[in-house]
Amino acid sequence: MEKNGKGVLVLQAGICVIMTCILAYAALSIYTSGMEARQAGDALAWIYTPEAVAAWVPWVLPLFLISLAVSVYAWVKGIRDEEAEKPVVDTENTRNLVSGNKEMNDAIRQERRKQQLITAGGWAVFAGLLIPVLLYFTRESNFPADDLEGMFAAMAANCIPWMIGAAAALAVSFGMKEASMKKEIELSSQAAQRKTPGAFPEGRTVNARTASIVRITVLVLAIVFVILGIFTGGAHDVLVKAVNICTECVGLG
């Protein structure tokens, strides 16, 4: 990479972030000012107008053109984040490869047990944090028929934090497991060599015969379902919904 390569990448990243922020601000700004007219008593007033949208073009267009120019410059000069192209070594694979040739001692066994516990614990916490989401879905009052916007806002407020929490718990457990696996690799490299190398754990593999049976079964089922669907009007329903735009379904609302 050229000397100023990193600067170009950071500049481009900055432009992208600023452009996104301006566009998001523009949308919010048009929405809030559009709503003022409605709140003033004109229920039919348009919130977004082509003029209001066009007013933001001078803010975004120059940034877009600069971004385009920076991209072209970077492509021509071959500037890119080379770190991103470097391989990301999978710790579990390395651990399996290293420990397969080494004798297992108590310390290694303890690390293995720790990893199993972390994995089980991580998934348990993940599932546990999703229970409130599940419970939320069982309450009929949370899903009223007359206020879909209110329903979505309440669902987002009540469920999204739990979902993020569940993903975060999983990330923490993956991180802890990785740290433990790295420790195991260090322990294994100091351990004695095995006389006969252990088999590499392949994970769940499917033999060819089972795969063929599953493929044929699913394929036959799929064809039967499609034919059944065509004769019972399912295909026509798909056509009808695809040729008529439900405005809210594409965000026009």
């Binding site: 799929a222 039967v224 379902f225 499609v226 669907g229 019972t232 009007g233 399912g234 329903d237 798909v238």
Partner: peptide
Amino acid sequence: HTAGWYMMG
């Protein structure tokens, strides 16, 4: 509306 079979297939 019986669209289920078709889409599942």
